[in-house]
Amino acid sequence: MSKKGFYKLVILTLVALNIAIVAFFLTKLKPQDKASVKNIRSEILEILHLNKEQAATFNKLADEHKQQMRVLDAQQAKLLYPYFESLADSSIHIEKDSILHQIQLSERQKIELTHRHFEKIKKLLNEDQKPYFKIFTKKITQKLIEK
């Protein structure tokens, strides 16, 4: 096999592995995880004492947030694979500092996205519901930290 053919094979293999990693992250929720998400949402609706209209808006916001986080997770997966694969394969040359910086930016985007999501939830609340927001943030922040 020529060098050119070898490199084509390596590139195709790496592309296939990247696609597999992205697919894994996009489908990583198991059935029990989906049930857990439903339970968390129900718990949030109870904690915040949301009415039906607020609950519908909340669920829409939560779905949007979940989709945006999946996109960021997939982008991050594309960065993590070559970073760690370069340990096992010395022919893979990467800019480690650049990749680490991009991963940091991705984490920052996820944190900022979640913060904006919480702000949107807070705006949903009536004055009599606002005291429950502190309980919500404490509980959800704890779940995020344990994740």
Rank of each mutant, 00 (worst) to 15 (best):
K4A: 03
K4Y: 08
K8L: 14
V10K: 08
V10N: 09
I11L: 14
I11H: 10
L12C: 07
T13E: 08
L14N: 06
L14C: 06
A16W: 12
A16P: 12
A20W: 14
I21D: 06
V22W: 05
A23E: 07
L26A: 10
K28S: 12
L29N: 15
L29H: 15
P31G: 04
D33M: 08
K34M: 12
K34I: 15
A35G: 13
V37N: 02
R41Q: 11
S42T: 13
S42R: 13
S42H: 15
I47G: 04
H49K: 13
L50E: 07
K52P: 12
K52R: 09
E53L: 14
A55D: 14
A56P: 11
F58K: 14
F58H: 15
N59S: 12
N59Q: 14
N59Y: 14
L61P: 12
L61S: 08
D63Q: 07
E64R: 04
E64C: 00
H65C: 01
V71A: 01
V71P: 01
D73F: 01
Q76G: 03
Q76I: 02
Q76P: 02
L79W: 10
L80F: 09
L80W: 10
Y83E: 05
Y83Q: 00
E85D: 00
S86L: 03
L87A: 05
L87E: 03
A88C: 03
D89L: 03
S90L: 05
S90H: 11
E95Q: 13
D97W: 12
I99A: 03
I99Q: 05
H101P: 06
Q102C: 01
Q104E: 15
S106E: 05
S106C: 03
S106H: 04
E107T: 14
R108F: 05
Q109F: 00
I111C: 02
T114R: 00
T114E: 06
H115T: 10
H115D: 09
K120G: 10
K120S: 15
I121W: 04
K122F: 11
K130L: 11
P131H: 00
Y132I: 05
Y132H: 14
F133N: 00
F133L: 01
I135Q: 13
T137M: 05
T137P: 10
K138I: 08
K138A: 09
T141I: 01
Q142E: 07
I145A: 07
E146C: 02
K147L: 07
